[in-house]
Design a protein around this nucleic acid. Structure first.
Lengths: 248, 248
DNA sequence: CGAATAATTGACCGAAATCAATACGGGTGG
DNA sequence: CCACCCGTATTGATTTCGGTCAATTATTCG
């Protein structure tokens, strides 16, 4: 089901059957995006929004020096460029990190939802603001954590988000990101990412190796990254698992 | 007028008289906040939102090391914690930077607006997403610019935002931020901020001195900060002035 | 006027970048 | 099936930007 992961395990509660049906009906088509494909380009007018069904996507900005920086990452269930519904054009690129399946929702249908279903509208608004909360946390990560802490924090975040959609068991998950990609997220060179990952491994917090993350000591990783999942608005049980409190 | 600066000079166009009236009517009261007062505390449930009428406010996160970091800044016309209307609690503190006048809007009244005025709702949603766009730019600033560029970029941003509400003439404006504050925005120490400001002065780009900014060469400052105002969704004329194209 | 806050400057240090070289791994084509 | 490549990972040597520490000089305001 296309909307299976939308708002799954969040504080706001699951979508009602009615809401889910309306959202599913708003989907024009699903499409496959090959890895690295840019789905929405900065500044271009858009009239459809993209719901990520399978795979990973990123929001990125190309700097003047040719270096690339990520300003956001998305997992299945994220309504990746719902922002564009309101803003009409984006201030950055949205690209597929891996091969991805996306559902296309025309803005005209979102307008209909907005006039016909207040509760679903609020939910969609919530989704966009959750992104904003994540943005703020990324600012925090860059401004107050050092390299080791940043990587730890990011791994905690991605683990928590994957946990919510059942793509992590709290200890092991697939993460198709190279050390260069991790560097683009945490604003570090790949060389330094490598050194930090070695430290994390040596300290027995986690092992990150080509597309697979194994967390050995989640509590310690959470402490190292000063991670507090509050900003993800996870339901209580998921939040507890995300910070290593109850394995359940 | 309370809403005078809301969406002023943006791409979306000014509020209609009807929208403005509805928004004004939603205000419960206006209140004075003394400088440094925390208006909304992290994690606390909120049932009113704050529209900034006069003064400056900040969104900030206190790091574990006791250091404070800003994840956002607000100028008059910004609906500072409209996010809380949807999220119900915030992941950070909102505080007054200077003495500030704010208008209090109860969430119950926002709900009424949502069910009764689709166009105004879309505008409010837009406001929250504009904040998100600014967040992304702050991430960009921290991850791909060095100290000199960061300060230049921030000064361009604040100039542009103040220009939109008529609080800057494009060359001179009041900015009641100490060098420590600037450091909290750009993630630099006050010592280094001081050195960078000296450089900017020596290069004759701008003079920043206790609560007053004078831009001597806006084009050069824009270039130094690699500033592109697109993310602020300013109307054409304001955008041109913000990057020093037409002084008009 | 005097105390507190903000700005300035210098000397030194350190985390992460840069530069450089090597190893690995998996897919392709001959 | 193996040789070759190219992207990825690893490690070391060196540099640099910004931080830290410390001391001095404005400001501002009660």
């Amino acid at each position: 089901m296309i909307t299976a992961n939308v708002l799954r395990n969040r504080t706001a509660g699951e979508l009602t059957e009615g809401e889910r049906a309306i959202l599913e009906a708003a989907v024009l088509e699903t499409r496959l995006l090959p890895a690295d494909q840019v789905a929405v380009r900065q500044g271009e007018p858009v009239n459809v929004s993209i719901l990520l069904v399978h795979g990973f996507m990123t929001r990125r900005v190309d700097a003047a020096d040719g270096r690339r920086h990520l300003v956001g990452g998305h997992v299945p269930g994220d309504f990746v460029d719902l922002h564009a519904y309101v803003l009409k054009k984006l201030d950055h690129d949205v690209a597929a990190l891996t091969d991805a399946t996306v559902a296309i929702v025309p803005h005209a249908r979102l307008e209909r939802i907005q006039s016909e279903c207040e509760s679903l509208t609020r939910r969609l608004w919530f989704l966009t603001l959750q992104d904003a909360a994540i943005h703020r946390q990324w600012i925090y990560r860059l401004s107050s954590l050092n390299a080791y802490q940043r990587i730890a924090h990011f791994l905690c975040e991605i683990n928590a988000r994957l946990l919510a959609i059942g793509a992590s068991d709290g200890a092991v998950f697939e993460l198709p990101m190279t050390q260069v990609d991790l560097g683009e997220v945490c604003s570090l060179t790949n060389v330094h990412v490598n050194r930090v990952l070695r430290q994390l491994r040596e300290n027995e917090l986690c092992t990150v190796r080509a597309s697979r993350v194994e967390i050995h000591d989640l509590k310690a990783l959470v402490a190292a990254g000063q991670f507090d999942s509050q900003y993800l608005f996870l339901n209580q049980q998921t939040a507890a698992r995300a910070c290593g409190l109850e394995s359940r």
